[in-house]
């Protein structure tokens, strides 16, 4: 589905992505993990075309994304920290995105309903708590039919109930055959969701494996433990 070839990007002296090659297949739920500043968000933003890499190509569904924007029709994106025009209301934001995508039908309003967005439509964005903003982001990410979902720290700031709702939604999406790309610091959260793991450090790709393979390789029972195992071994 998404093929990344020799992707390189640096900000000043900092190498955020160093010659990264990846192949992300349809129907997988891929967890993108690594310490802070390892290049996860840069990778995501590169796929979205928000960050323009110096080198390398990203092939989306067989097409290079360079100078293309229509491929983003196939992507639902939930940013790490949703930043929205401050004096717009939630309702206006949702309307605007629908307008810009030119799509008012076939919308997935499950999250919209279960998060109770309808009650808050008149609230201005700058008056929202971080959690509510995340709810809006999640609602928007899932609202449009897409082939790829990119979720950057989706559960950060969400209350446990909302968090569970979102997790269920992710699992459901994966079952529909959507490629889910998800980053999280909380490895335990990924436990029942992820089918593949990508681990990055300092802009380098360390590993990209199926969860089952990872577990059996390391002989651990959970993703969290497997990663810790790998890190310990590396240090040793």
């Amino acid at each position: 589905m998404i093929e990344i070839k020799k992707l390189t990007k640096s900000f000043g002296k900092l190498k955020a992505l160093n010659n990264v090659n990846l192949n992300l297949a349809q129907g997988e739920c891929i967890a993108l993990i690594g310490p802070n500043g390892c290049g996860k968000t840069t990778l995501i933003k590169s796929i979205l075309g928000m960050v323009l890499p110096e080198n390398g190509d990203i092939i989306f569904n067989g097409k290079n994304i360079k100078n293309d924007n229509l491929y983003r029709n196939e992507i639902g994106y939930m940013p790490q920290i949703g930043r929205y025009p401050e004096n717009m209301t939630i309702g206006q934001i949702i309307n605007m995105i629908q307008g810009i995508r030119n799509q008012q039908r076939d919308l997935d309003v499950e999250l919209y309903n279960s998060f109770g967005i309808a009650k808050m439509l008149d609230k201005k964005m700058h008056a929202l708590s971080g959690g509510t903003t995340q709810k809006v982001s999640a609602t928007l990410a899932f609202m449009f039919p897409s082939k790829v979902l990119i979720l950057d720290e989706p559960t950060a700031g969400l209350d446990p109930i909302a968090s569970e709702i979102l997790k269920d939604k992710i699992i459901e999406a994966r079952k529909k055959g959507i490629l889910v790309l998800i980053t999280s610091h909380l490895l335990s959260e990924l436990e029942n969701i992820a089918s593949q793991i990508i681990f990055m450090e300092d802009g380098n790709l360390i590993l990209h494996k199926n969860v089952e393979e990872l577990k059996s390789d390391t002989g651990q029972s959970s993703i969290a433990k497997s990663i810790i195992h790998i890190l310990k071994n590396k240090v040793a």
């Binding site: 979205l48 075309g49 928000m50 924007n69 229509l70 491929y71 983003r72 029709n73 992507i75 994106y77 940013p79 930043r83 929205y84 025009p85 401050e86 934001i93 995105i97 810009i100 995508r101």
Partner: peptide, 15 residues
């Protein structure tokens, strides 16, 4: 002040 607006739009299919 439109930075957020721009960011929001860029992740959607808009040139």
């Amino acid at each position: 002040n439109s930075n957020e607006f721009i960011e929001l739009l860029v992740s959607h299919p808009v040139k």
